[in-house]
Design a binder for these strands. Sequence first.
DNA 1: TCGTGTCAAGATCTT
DNA 2: AAGATCTTGACACGA
Length: 316
Amino acid sequence: MEIRFGYVAIALNLNNSSTSKTITLKNLEKIAGTEPKLTKLCRITSENLENALRVIRYNMEEKIHIYRLTSKLVPFATYPLEFEWNYIDIFKNQLERIGNLIKTSSIRVSAHPDHFTVINSPDEKVFNNSVKDLEYHASIFNAMGLEKEHKLVTHLGGFYGDRNQSIARFKENFLRLPQGVKSRIVLENDDKIYTAKEVLRVCQELKIPMVFDLHHHTCNPGGQLESLIPKIWSTWTDIRPKIHVSSPKDQKNYRNHADYVEASSLLNFLSLAKKVNRDFDVMVEAKMKDIAMFNLVRDLGEYEGITQLDQSTIEI
DNA sequence: TCGTGTCAAGATCTT
DNA sequence: AAGATCTTGACACGA
């Protein structure tokens, strides 16, 4: 079976290729007049999209099939400024070009709205802002022409003093999301509150695919791997399952991501996944980004029973 | 040019 | 009720 690896947002091998350039609100406000402000925002966005195109081209050339786009392609995309700007319209062509390259090179992309998106928040304002943020992500993917297998990864959310109530609220709020958002969402177990077992149950109930994070599972265990894997795989009905891997920074900051990923920490998971015999993808979450991914694949290839097919793919 | 405090947004723990 | 901390890459300011 084949396992493909990818990385998050930044291609360290490409110089000056940030796709997350921005401006602070204070400095945006310092710019006099609406037009100049808009010009500034557009210049930044355009630069981010140009770099995104470069990064996708790099991925294509390096035969990297798994990639997470940054959430910050468009600065202040969901922030209520004193003027409207339809960045989807303005950057239609650039977004299309990126999407076309993603499709022709068969790259599987995703995005991970950051921690301000909390679907199970009891605060309606926070929920509404989360909807906005998810819609922003979905609209970018749609403008790129990306099919529904390109997903948005998020978590169950906060604890709010009562686990069961908060899980129940997630389900209620999830059902309130726009269809175009619901069909993009996949859920991931987190490192502090909701375990793989708990997230799996919600995913099964709501028919949401589940991204399994191996490192989070170590920080916040729930359920046995051997029984979890086939069930988690089943949530991905017609799409390859995907997992996240990372290594702890150190004992003190165990939950933080290290520069690289320790290959040996995957061996147990791989041997259990082999029994299920289904191809899957791995997102490497490490400070050293694409370089960490290449190293991990190389290191795994050294083990008995693992064959390195290319610099981002193994076979077991 | 380099180092460092700050940043639009949330949640949680501490005070 | 207010403040610190978490986490993250990049900005922005000052040395």
